[in-house]
Amino acid sequence: MQPTGGSVAAFVAQVTPAKRRRDAETLIALMSEVSGREPELWGTIIGFGSCHYRYPTGNEGDMPLIAFAPRKAASTLYVLDGTGEHPAELARLGPHTASVGCVYIKDLELVDQEVLRTLVHKAYAFTVGGGNDYARITVTG
């Protein structure tokens, strides 16, 4: 995966429904603040910074340090250390669903903003910290 160079503002302006567009703007502000980086488009994903990952199997690739996607059904937050690493935050977050590496939020106004900030900060710290034995991560940008 690589940054596509598109305009984040133009992409967000076309996001529907309006609630998802509002949430995208909120997440951009939050992730910019946590990461100290500007948003970039990675296809339909809005990412901050970049890194190279390598699994013990030899599979490797590039990805943002932290990212989300404003999907029609929900905002998808990518939690690179896995949602299993955040049981306390997810228990207190508010209305959401989760998979192994993603948190899906239908309305950011209904979740605890401080818990969300903590979750984003911990996921970012994991990535810039180099990962773990399962995935080695090198910050590239």
Rank of each mutant, 00 (worst) to 15 (best):
K19G: 00
K19I: 11
R20G: 00
R20I: 04
R20H: 06
R20C: 05
R21S: 12
R21A: 13
R21D: 12
R22W: 11
R22N: 14
R22M: 10
R22L: 12
R22S: 13
R22D: 15
D23A: 13
D23F: 02
D23V: 03
D23G: 06
A24W: 03
A24Q: 03
A24V: 00
A24I: 06
E25Q: 12
E25G: 15
E25I: 00
E25M: 08
E25T: 04
T26L: 01
T26G: 01
T26W: 06
L27A: 08
L27Y: 11
L27R: 10
I28A: 05
I28K: 01
I28N: 03
I28H: 06
A29L: 03
A29H: 06
A29P: 02
L30C: 07
M31R: 08
S32H: 08
S32A: 14
S32I: 00
S32T: 14
E33S: 15
E33Q: 15
E33P: 02
E33Y: 13
E33C: 00
E33M: 10
V34Y: 12
V34R: 05
V34F: 10
V34E: 08
S35I: 06
S35Y: 00
G36S: 12
G36C: 09
G36L: 05
R37Y: 12
R37M: 15
E38C: 04
E38S: 14
E38Q: 14
E38G: 10
E38F: 04
P39T: 06
P39F: 04
P39S: 08
P39M: 13
E40Q: 15
E40H: 09
L41D: 12
L41N: 13
W42C: 01
W42L: 02
W42K: 04
T44L: 09
T44A: 14
T44V: 12
T44Y: 12
T44F: 12
I45E: 14
I46D: 07
I46P: 04
G47N: 03
G47P: 01
G47I: 08
G47E: 07
F48T: 04
F48L: 09
G49Y: 14
G49E: 06
G49D: 09
C51D: 00
C51S: 00
C51M: 12
C51A: 00
C51V: 02
